[in-house]
Design a protein around this nucleic acid. Sequence first.
RNA 1: GCGAUAGUAGCUCAGUUGGUAGAGUGGAAGCUUCCCAAGCUUCAGGUCGCGGGUUCGAACCCCGUCUAUCGCUCCA
Length: 514
Amino acid sequence: MAKQEDVFKKIVSHCKEYGFVFPSSEIYDGLGAVYDYAQNGVELKNNIKRYWWEAMTLLHENIVGIDSAIFMHPSIWKASGHVDAFNDPLIDNKDSKKRYRADVLIEDEIAKYDEKINKEVEKARKRFGENFDEKMYCDTNARVLEYRKKRDEIHQRFADAMNANDLKALKQIIDDCEIVDPISGTRNWTDVRQFNLMFKTEMGSSADSAMDIYLRPETAQGIFVNFLNVQKTGRMRIPFGIAQIGKAFRNEIVARQFVFRMREFEQMEMQFFVCPGDEMRWFEYWKEGRMKWHKALGMGDEKYRYHDHEKLAHYANAATDIEFKMPFGFKEVEGIHSRTDFDLSQHEKFSGKKIQYFDPELNKSYTPFVIETSIGVDRMFLTVLCSSYEEHQLDNGDSRVVLHLPKALAPVKCAILPLVKKDGLPEKAHEIMDILKFDFACCYDEKDSVGKRYRRMDAIGTPYCITIDGQTLEDNTVTLRDRDSMEQQRVSIAELPAIIGQECSLNTLLKKLV
RNA sequence: GCGAUAGUAGCUCAGUUGGUAGAGUGGAAGCUUCCCAAGCUUCAGGUCGCGGGUUCGAACCCCGUCUAUCGCUCCA
């Protein structure tokens, strides 16, 4: 494991050194958990986004895209549940130095009473045998009644405190129940504090008319609130989907692991609207479909796995993650959630506007159910880098650092290298570049020995190096070097676009999906 | 946020008991070179994360702060 962590460190510094990712505001000591994409990183990221976008919108005639604003009406976040759910009440134990969610501590305490009751019931069941009436027993047994009373009392206080957002009341419950830290065993607690995960700003110039605005913590709501607009103007019929790529913001208490968890991040989300009752079928469809999208990149099927959620979010009736084997363990890259009609119903309730779909086949109106696929662009970026990075030991004792990026995602597709910078080779090289540059991101380099230039290209994952030599001037052939095998073949200039396009175009990837 | 650890050139790191900063590598320009980090010449780049303090004098000692890594927690 320690070795794997080292690999991750190397990947992070490789990103810096070869222009993939820089810490934000670095000359001012950086800004916590915010990163900038550099010249190569932005190309790789754009290619990932394009692969996703085209897989969604080109390959599915019933999926269209939108790009909603980051600023949205504040009521949206009340409707979505984020104002409540994104406020975790936290408490620290001063002895163990551990932090807990206060609500979870109390819920565990409540669960303990249920356990006690169950124990009593089981004891009684043994005693009374077949004639045992559980309900009757529970309603009359003094001990059970006492446990129930205490449980319900705590539960009620807990619910009141949570509803009122009363942090002091939560602390009081923890004190009154004499809840101890499972590690230190002490009750030396700090106050309960709240950390809102949404960034807040103001809209409007004068102080009295200013409105509190949140930076969106997810892009999904922009799709839900536009559901009717898109459905009507696009004449969409269920089932159909709306796709969106955009920035989202979360004021993470702890943001770590490079671009894996950032405060400003980018999501690719597709919300698929289906007839109620059909949702599990579509959930399975997208669960498989999304895995296929990942595996088509050829980074190794064994690096992926599903993680089905047992504990579901307030809006979901089924949920799974696609996890990828990062150097620091299997980590969630994408989530597929069956969100029921929660979001659309909530917006109907909060906006007072009817948000329903008239189904011509069933001849009735209903609130559609939603299957969501949500993937973090930055996490995807990281999976691609982690699976591509290799320190390749060569037979001659040398080593090279090479990024085996999926060729269609590589920031630069081909390097154009005159073997020497004289004898008319640079001129010939530029001629070739002028042919290729319309279709492929090319990089011209004439500095240093050709071997050194190959290594530079390996380090940024350029799939092909085209080398122009003396023979090129005679018969219009070049050598084409493959990044992964380092093997070279002699091909004519005219063949180049077809050969490079074969491996490097997005179409190659997309065709694997259908 | 709390705790532990760290921060010196683009990168990887030296820097003795406090005495005004060094290597390797990388980068730029040139020479050489017909295929995998070759060689030669020249150059650029650091108020040692930042701010205070102690001292005649601080990269080094003390305090604060920022950033990063790991654990707790959460999640795309």
